[in-house]
Design a protein around this nucleic acid. Sequence first.
DNA 1: AATTCGGGGCT
DNA 2: AGCCCAGAATT
Length: 349
Amino acid sequence: MSSFSKTLLQWYRLNKRNMPWVGETDPYKVWLSEVILQQTRVEQGTAYYLDFIKHYPTVQHLAKASANEVMKRWEGLGYYSRARNMHATANVITQQLKGVFPDTPEGLQSLKGIGKYTANAILAYAYHKPYAVTDGNVLRILSRYQGITIPVNTPAGKKMVEALADRLLDKQLPHTYNQALMDFGSLVCTPRNPDCGNCPFRRSCYAFNHEMTAILPQKEKKRAAKTRYFNFFVMKSGNKVLIMPRHAADIWKALWQFPLIETAEEATLQDIQRSNVYKDWKLGKVQWEEAGTFKQQLTHRRLICRFFTGEIKTTPEIDGMQELVNRKEMERFAFPGVIRDFMKGKLYF
DNA sequence: AATTCGGGGCT
DNA sequence: AGCCCAGAATT
């Protein structure tokens, strides 16, 4: 055992976080937890994890569920390709791999939604194999510890940290070591105001000794968020309303929405009604009512979503699948958060 | 190598 | 407003 690992595990014994998947060795549950936690805080993902293992205790249960049901269960968690890939992979494992998870990095990474991090996590936690995980915590800890100044959000920087992570890994206890390192990043070596006063690595940490903790890890700036203008048309017909799935390679793919016309900038209802997309719907005369504007700030998008409600007399000619549902039936479908906001806000039909 | 994919919490 | 979160896939 390296002295790094010895120090880390000593810290871990006294400070470990208690989470439902800690110590889990069922590769299905390890996989589930890792996918749910991708770019997601533990506090946000935990309830989803518990809900998923409750309703889908095995990979076979998950594979058997419908895509809509899985998406509904994922609703609100974001990055919905995770749910789509997870469901597809559950079927591959059930049908092609006889229910057995691969136990090699290549085998795991050949599955949709499993990259290097998740593959290594499964190898370490489920099979106790000597693979180091490199997530946001590890990038931060090790770039500080070693004084790595290459931006960690570039391939070169990530490679550098991964090589160091491989060297420091405790090959006897990869599962405990990896978990300990991430807990340490979450509790001590935090993004802002790290608790260096209580850090057991203080004496050997490059960043601490060179007063660089505030500037490490280095990151390349991301571009500012662009604004998109979504105009949703809530088409009512009696006690039912028309919804349709999003299918394009775009945000919220496979979630449901109201018929949408996106504009390059803020537009008036008259402008939108003059557009070819609107005309092609062939709705005839509809009395639209402005029903609210909801804004949502995402990591790289700013969304301005306007909602118009109106009673339709004829079925619109819209490409793709559509469903006419009442209020209760709508609950089976997964919607983007901003549409949920709209539906929560008022009685709209 | 750069961009995209959500949503929420924190400063 | 900007950053970050147990990243992966696409271009």
